[in-house]
Design a protein around this nucleic acid. Structure first.
Lengths: 404, 404
DNA sequence: ACTAATAAGTCAAGCGAATTGATTTAATAA
DNA sequence: TTATTAAATCAATTCGCTTGACTTATTAGT
């Protein structure tokens, strides 16, 4: 502790760092705004037109942007807008859930090109990782079959898994997939695929998906409540995903928040509000492949048991939303998840009217206080795929973080 | 909406921006680590020794750092450590509370040089701002009397006020100082002092103080619960203060969180847990100048009424801490505030044992899950003073944010 | 129809902070 | 006494951004 004194400091930067930052800025601006001319980009970023010109030229050479037909908009030379090239980059997303694993491959703008799933064997991660690597291999083959050049432009692989990470089983809870977390999963996957791999929890992945192509597109402050087999939240703060000190931020499934009538023995929120709780209520097998259809049917059929459950979940979510609004002061809160569309939509309806909070301001953004986001079994995998793209091209992984 | 298309983009950067960033990096590293040699700084920041040398030389010329006696630590040329020069910069902090305004002047390392307060007249902001400007004038005179050169090195003025901002009286609540918030306070102060002035809520200011010179020193993820006349939280996320979409993040005083026994008519948290609530309980006049001494006396004397109140507040804080831990996954939570030391310490004691949460990990940081921070009536003013220093010298206001 | 005004975009030279690699200085270890 | 290690500096180079002049393409005004 003396020879290597642990000095805490942020990283310095240099010309290369600044340049990398500016490249990412451009890509980010094009993603959020659609097509922009060089002059637009110069104005928006504060860089000189010449600098923008050089950067755009380089990005075009790299196959990441391309020009559109020029548009005349008044006096002066017409502008040539540039847009992202969808096939400029590809990424793999992998979701590992309790009973199933899903993988998707998306391009730079988030189009899904390949989509595959497999049942996870009960033998735990040692057997599971074999299935996973096999699934990824098949997905890559499918990608190559449909776009031969794509493989060269794979920028990475994102993995989404239920959290929390690094906790020694807080509650004795089979949902926590402890075995998976003590397994060198990421090493095995990185090794097996030859790709850079990053891990995040499923709620964070879903939030990334919302930001890149969902309800949080272009927002800098949004909280995404992920209603899946468990319950979590992805936190978009200052336009970045926030992970906390140990990548466990947003674990709202673990909060012990009461609703009127609860006693001191209240259980963690996700024991009430989650697909797991619903399966228990309806006595459905969560590993059932047709689970979503079954739940959708059940909801459409209705019935007092289900209505009562949704009402009670809505009450808990109503209070959770009030807490999140007070704590984060976000532009909006998004309810999304690996859950059937009808369920998410019904819950959003039932949570209204919201409780009073600081979010109740006269001049609000166009965004509602609470809205529905992406809702399908693939949303976590989609978000996982969005992560490497964000990592590669988002300014937040920029100059400041790493000297190049 | 067509002529000026609102394009959303982050700012680009250039050589000047990178350079400014690196300067701030250096100052930040010296603040957090104490004295460091140029070689240390080079290793810690990833910059070359030559670059560090140039920057340090420039900072020394500007009077912000100075060298200490060189130290021999083994083989090789002895290192010359550099430290921040306390009198390298000064800043004014101003707290505007319900009944009183306080101002402090601190130097670069946070030493308090001047400390003055004044009663606020009941006439509202129009009269109040006169008192405030007069108080600041007196404080500056006192500063000049004790350090004639200091006035030239004033980097700014920070104002701390109770939030939330921009809300049209959510509850009909006399605590919210609505009149002050609809008054062009900051313009008047900036104009009257000739200094750059920034506004934040008192909890955020207290968190800045904790980070620069309190329990959160050097931490990147900490939540500071500010127990003052009201209740709020300052959020330090990724080493930066987080303000939310409208600078109201951390308003935990407004959450409607229940404890066992509460009904649906639960009131906002700060109606139970705050100095205001305590004053009501004890029938103390909050504008009483000797309030802190009176409360301290009352607590030391004890008695069932007070114990019961503290127990009930502790129960609410216990649940709030569990929620904050689950949501933020911080390194630590700090209970601080404009409240007497004994009260803060007693509350921290009484909140134990904490509820189970994801913060309960086997290998925790040295930091406890909950600890006491700064606790005195001046802490918000101190934090307000820390803000301009942070703004001037913190890397977070760096290259990325503004092209120089 | 012609000219002035406006805006997009390029060219070429210059700048400046960091890098690179060689060098100097000052200590300890052998 | 010599080799080794580490801090710090010197001098030359690098490279992306800026500056300012210039070209191109369109509309507005007379």
């Amino acid at each position: 502790m003396d020879g290597i004194r642990s000095i805490r400091a942020k990283s310095g930067t240099n010309l290369g760092g600044a340049s990398a930052h500016n490249r990412r800025i451009m890509i980010d601006a094009l993603r959020v705004n659609g097509a922009l001319s060089r002059a637009d980009l110069a104005r928006a970023t504060g860089l000189t037109p010449q600098a923008v010109s050089n950067i755009i030229e380089e990005l075009a050479r790299d196959g990441l942007v391309r020009s559109q037909a020029s548009v005349r908009k008044g006096r002066g030379q017409p502008a040539t807008p540039y847009q992202l090239v969808p096939e400029g980059a590809f990424a793999i997303g992998l979701q590992i859930d309790r009973h199933v694993t899903r993988t998707v491959i998306v391009n730079l703008v988030g189009d899904v090109l390949v989509q595959m799933e497999a049942k996870l064997p009960p033998g735990g991660p040692a057997q599971g990782v074999v299935v996973i690597l096999d699934l990824i291999r098949k997905a890559r083959n499918a990608l190559t079959a449909q776009a031969p050049e794509a493989e060269k432009r794979l920028v990475g692989l994102g993995v989404a898994m239920p959290g929390p990470f690094g906790i020694n089983t807080l509650y004795d809870d089979p949902w926590m997939m402890t075995a998976w977390q003590n397994f060198p999963l990421m090493d095995r996957i990185a090794e097996g695929t030859g790709l850079e791999a990053a891990l995040q929890n499923d709620a964070a992945a879903a939030a990334t998906a919302e930001r890149l192509l969902g309800a949080a597109h272009g927002l800098d402050h949004a909280i995404c409540i992920y209603f899946g087999y468990g319950l979590g939240a992805g936190l978009i703060l200052n336009g970045e995903l926030y992970g906390g000190a140990h990548a466990n931020a947003g674990e709202i499934g673990m909060i012990l928040a009461l609703v009127p009538g609860d006693g001191p023995d209240v259980e963690p929120l996700e024991h009430y509000a989650s697909m797991a709780a619903l399966c228990k209520l309806l006595d459905f097998d969560p590993s059932e492949p047709e689970l979503f259809a079954m739940i959708t049917d059940a909801i459409l059929r209705g019935g007092p048991k289900l209505e009562q459950w949704m009402d009670s979940v809505a009450e808990r979510l109503r209070r959770t939303v009030q807490i999140l609004e007070s704590i984060f002061d976000p532009q909006t809160i998004i309810l999304c998840g690996g859950a059937p569309r009808v369920l998410i939509d019904r819950l959003v309806e039932k949570v209204e009217p919201l409780l009073p909070s600081i979010a109740e301001r006269s001049r609000r953004y166009p965004e509602a206080r609470l809205q529905a986001g992406l809702a399908d079994p693939w949303s976590a995998a989609l978000g996982a795929a969005a992560e490497p793209i964000a990592r590669t091209f988002d300014p937040r992984f920029s100059a400041i973080l790493k000297t190049v």
